[in-house]
Amino acid sequence: MIEVRDLRRTYRGRLGRPAVDALRGVSFDVAAGQRFGIVGESGSGKSTLVRLLAALDTPTGGTISFRGTRIDGVPERRLKFLRDELQIVFQDPMGSLDPRMRVRDIICEPLKRRDDERLAELLDAVGLPLDAASRYPHQFSGGQRQRISIARALAPDPKVLIADEPVSALDVSVRAQILNLLADLVERYELTLVFVSHDLSVVRHVCDTVAVMRRGEIVELGDVEQVYQQPLHEYTRELIAAAPTLRAALARFQEG
């Protein structure tokens, strides 16, 4: 589905500051139907990678192919197919939903026409009531807003869904609902999922494969269970050790 080879992106330094190598030669494949996780902390290059995968930015070097067609450095007018087949859900729905548009228009915008039947189907798929259509984003909670952006992403019937930290801004209880919703939708619409997160335990729950990124490079790539249980790279081990888990924390009390 997606083929990335030796991908590089350097941001030019401004005001005398040195240039930043956000991506330093990244290669991987995402197969159809895969749930591919990308884990990394601030500055690891994961957001740059997302922008390049969605052809919202041009790489400094390397190639990206989507279903066999190159999408790097291709002018926007020839990316129509990609805009329908690949969709993104962002972390902060308030920042990615136009506050002045009604939910109906937000969801139908990628369709370029009003389609009430499709709208009803999408609202139902993401678990929102029909009367949500006539309201505005600020009238919803964070979890509901994320449902709106998922409905919008699904509107053009994409093959690939990129979820960029979709649950990082949400409470744990809402997080569980949205993760379950994503799992349902991926199954129902046979989506290929690229799931980006700073939290390896969330990726472990959602994905089958994971790429661990640090400073613009993939330091480890493989089956998510294997990476989590037997991390090969020092940095992956550090990530796992740093994340607090309820079990480990409670063990502290039980030891006395």
């Binding site: 209880s173 569980a176 379950n180 799992a183 349902d184 335990s201 472990r204 729950h205 309820l246």
Partner: peptide, 21 residues
């Protein structure tokens, strides 16, 4: 009880879904 169940990413129902509040 529900909050604890929903935060546990390692315990899921028979369909692999997380517990919710």
């Amino acid at each position: 009880q529900q909050l604890l169940a929903s935060s546990d990413l390692e315990s899921t129902d028979e369909n692999g879904r997380l517990k919710t509040v």
